[in-house]
Write a protein that binds this DNA or RNA. Sequence first.
DNA 1: ACTCTATTCAAACGCCTGTTTCAATCAAGT
DNA 2: ACTTGATTGAAACAGGCGTTTGAATAGAGT
Lengths: 239, 239
Amino acid sequence: MSSARTSHPTAASSAATDDPRERILSAAGQEFAEKGYEAATIRDICTAAGVNVAAVNYYFGDKRRLYNESVTHAHQQRVRQVPLPKWPPGTPPEQKLRDFVGNMLQRMLGFDQPPWQVRLMLREILHPTDACRELVEDYIRPHFTVLVSILDELTAGSLSKAELRRVGLSVVGQCFLYRAAGDVVNMLIPGPEINRLHTTDQLADHVTSFCLAALGRGTPLTDRNSRLSSHRVSPSGQA
Amino acid sequence: MSSARTSHPTAASSAATDDPRERILSAAGQEFAEKGYEAATIRDICTAAGVNVAAVNYYFGDKRRLYNESVTHAHQQRVRQVPLPKWPPGTPPEQKLRDFVGNMLQRMLGFDQPPWQVRLMLREILHPTDACRELVEDYIRPHFTVLVSILDELTAGSLSKAELRRVGLSVVGQCFLYRAAGDVVNMLIPGPEINRLHTTDQLADHVTSFCLAALGRGTPLTDRNSRLSSHRVSPSGQA
DNA sequence: ACTCTATTCAAACGCCTGTTTCAATCAAGT
DNA sequence: ACTTGATTGAAACAGGCGTTTGAATAGAGT
């Protein structure tokens, strides 16, 4: 009671690496992402962050609150890093769909940036805790709404909202499998095939073609034995 | 060293509930499935199984080996409970696909039987440990092979093996999303819609139609505004 | 120079974990 | 009845965990 623990510092200003609060959040996010909530230890987190064990209690109160703030922090970072694509008016919905799928796969699987934030969010998706609702409302639902509107445009309003949502889930599911069960997928697919056919772009092409064909736009997969009808759409998302 | 710990009992005979080994495996499977490896405690497991804490060390050696045997045990149970459907020769591949998808969804989401074995296997799929390879080879790959052969029959050999596998993953992904990210899906879909349109049968119909349309068999989803062309195929799997 | 407050630090506190001990019990075998 | 081996039981072990303590430090205000 004698120590100064009143008026928690908010540290909303600088995001420099010398801010202990920021360093703890970053280290905690990576530890939680890799090992999960139970297996990650405060001692390891503080060692990685270069601060004393007491710091986490001083800044965050306890482990659970540190976890919640880590999820929020990672998800806000991710939103800034990979915004939803913006299309000029008149963009054909087929290209929008291809861009959206490519963007989603890039965000889920992209190797260009360390994906520990995604892995942390994935844990919340698979085993939701308190931090999940915010994640859904701020991050997942907006993306899903955009997807549904693309599908609505694509089908010219001939599908009900419920049907559109189901189709949207079909699109997401195809991408989600590679992120969530990637290890098992790699065990099912012969080695050379993975490197050639399971790149982010290849997968985006496949998922897009598959869905367009299912919706009656674009040719069914069986009608393209020869390579002449592959109507590639160049990806433009990811800023 | 003085205690009798030589010649571990195999207990391969009876599966009665008075066999301590069996009771521990069952309790451990449920605890591991619900809480994960780290959060599940040996004391809780033994309390649930009605045995002493020393029993797990006596029968299994340590926690890790108990976990591995739990996964194996649950997966073998599941294989016996829900075998792959068998079709008489001449069954149209469309119906086979519908049966397969319905069977997979029933196995993943089925509310008729306690699905803790599936949740335990899901944990292995998401974060593989040593017990994963056996799971893939004995359980997942055979199912996936059947799916690919159905798709091959469906497309009359016009798709390469690599393309067939990609389509197979598209089928699996659509189902997998509901199992792995079911909580988030429920947050994205309005309440009443879940109970009406997201039953196991409805989902199987949707996924099957979606894939058939994408493969050029069956009508695209946009060409069925009126309810007259819904070519339902009754499910026959699940023995 | 002194004070006050915010922050850091090493050390410790209970508590719970997986694991082990060793005596008690039990069920044949002879 | 006695022995033998397998199984169970209550209690303890060492170690790691989240958390707390209280003193040391730093830095600005006056």
